[in-house]
Amino acid sequence: MAPAVRDLIAAFVLLNGVIGAVTYVTLLERKFTARMQSRIGPYRVGPHGLLQPIADALKLMMKEDVVPAMSDRWVYNLAPLAFLLPCVLVFGTIPFAPGLGLADLNIGLLFFLAVSALEIVGLFMGGWGSNNKYALLSAMRAVNQIISYDLPFIFAALIPVVLSGTLRLGGIVEAQQGGWYVAYPVIGQLGFLAYLVAMLAAENRVPFDILEAESELVAGFRVEYSGMKFALIQLAEYAHVIATSYLGALLFLGGWLGPGPGWLGAVWFTLKALAVFLLVTWVRWSFVRIRVDQILAISWKLLLPVTLMLLLAAAFVVAYQGGGGVA
């Protein structure tokens, strides 16, 4: 088989895997939240509501696609795709187990961070193209927030890079053979914490979901979207959450490392990613949203200096011990 064909098949499998996983992650979140709120959650469609995501997807596909009359049609129609593309593309570089991944690039982390930062383009296109005041305010907030939080997010993600001495995601996991970076004294724990906070903000989840802010901006940049376009935005958002959960598990929780035979690696990795995801979900469903000025203050006055200091500390430790990586 030609390598190009093989890659195409792999990409097809990965893309559909991601989409399927994302739809079921929404069910997981709904069930988890329901338990938190002393509810049952989806229960009617299929046993224990297991077919609910499929029903939701079908419903969204069959809905009428409304395009606002005064919208900027090209921008409006392209926005969901521009939003979805980077969110799914980042999965290409995640190694789920040794050798199990689309491309374990030697600049994997750089690729991940650069591509995932592109989602802002889709957000802003959606906000602008809708020609809606709520959406426009939301798009403005999006630019504010993502510019402020991508920096601490990147700095937090760079700590394991400094410790392991490689940008290759597979390499970062291999460097954690001796101990997960979350167990690294002080730097590891604070770094993971900073990563989680920045991740919440970068994904626009409560308490940082000022983009969506349905009590002020109704639904923010997606207020005018309906049907399949809305579904794509939703899909992209969850894909991004899952991708950053995987990245968090990879950078700080040792990726596929775990007891048992090698083939269990992917399972361990997924479980760790889900643990990160549920942690974020837990935070989401117990906090109130904070205001836009407070979000910016937290980023620039607290998170950015802290992550920068941690990064410098990590660099200092590595320089002192000599060479990249911890033994």
Partner: peptide
Amino acid sequence: CMDMGGALGGGAT
């Protein structure tokens, strides 16, 4: 709390 926390957030809880 729902006003401040969002129907998809801590407020709803």
